[in-house]
Nucleic acid binder design. Structure first.
Lengths: 145, 145
DNA sequence: TTAACTGCAAAGGGTTTGCAAGCAC
DNA sequence: GTGCTTGCAAACCCTTTGCAGTTAA
């Protein structure tokens, strides 16, 4: 485990606290998914499908519908961030702070871009009566030909 | 018409040239859609549905499938840019240069953000063997409560 | 004439939902 | 017990596609 989780004896304990902190019942399914998401204290970018596969691989019986419902519940609780890059699928990020992403067009993979290297000096002026909900920066990458 | 189109006698003529410049046959349907998109020389952000409705309102008979096919053809020809903001639908921008957008969460509307006010000083270092395909910046706005 | 385009309806992919059965509290 | 969760299947939304008919060159 990393420094983030050293206070916890087990990943399950860590995940349980993460869930209750979000006001969500620690059901068997949610615990399994939460452990996959934040068990090792690392940030992760998953799709519903990839998390579903990971759960299956781990031997956790969770239906795909529950993965969707759970990801949505986590987002609404504010412990997960949804990112839409390509039309079809959604990615979910365990890092809920505004930060830039790399999107690997060839693989359809999303990863963090080092935030400290992105400097936005001055945002466009926000129209009156509006406020910024989020600033999404996605740097699309392709293999150099 | 704006300065962009003053060399043309009609919007149709302008649209015809825009199409042939993109290597696309100026069919009745494409002309109608092209006129709606760039007829007045202004930049526009549309969805397939909104363009379909606009065409109907104008009295142009175009099927929804053709709107989709046409928007895709315009994108592939490089005269339109696709932007995915919220999971489901795609927006199409007549301004094909990389520039930041405002996304109005309450209305689901996309508009240009003044590009000259956004200064990205230094992009995160790009991994070896990769190159930047595009940098998408979407500033999500919500009504101030 | 011929290849490209259109339109309908049907299929597609990702996501959500209705509802009965199952849990956490 | 009571209300939130789960799971299955069906529904959903946006988008694409197969194919027969139409049209630009």
């Amino acid at each position: 485990m990393t420094s983030d989780t050293t206070a916890y004896a087990t990943e399950t304990e860590f995940a349980t606290d993460w869930l209750s902190g979000a006001g969500l019942r620690p059901t068997r399914q949610r615990l399994a998914l939460a452990e996959l998401l934040i068990g090792d204290g690392q940030h992760r970018h998953v799709t519903a499908e990839s998390l579903f596969e990971a759960a299956k691989a781990k031997g956790a019986a969770v239906s795909l519908a529950t993965v969707y419902n759970t990801l949505r519940a986590f987002c609404e609780a504010g412990v997960l961030h949804e990112i839409t890059v390509d039309g079809s699928k959604s990615y979910f990020d365990t890092n809920t702070h505004d930060h830039p992403h790399f999107y690997w067009e060839d693989e359809g993979r999303l990863s963090d871009a080092p935030a400290d290297q992105l400097q936005i000096n001055c945002l466009p002026e926000i129209p009156d009566g509006a406020e910024i909900a989020a600033v999404e920066v996605v740097i699309r990458l392709r293999r150099k030909r």
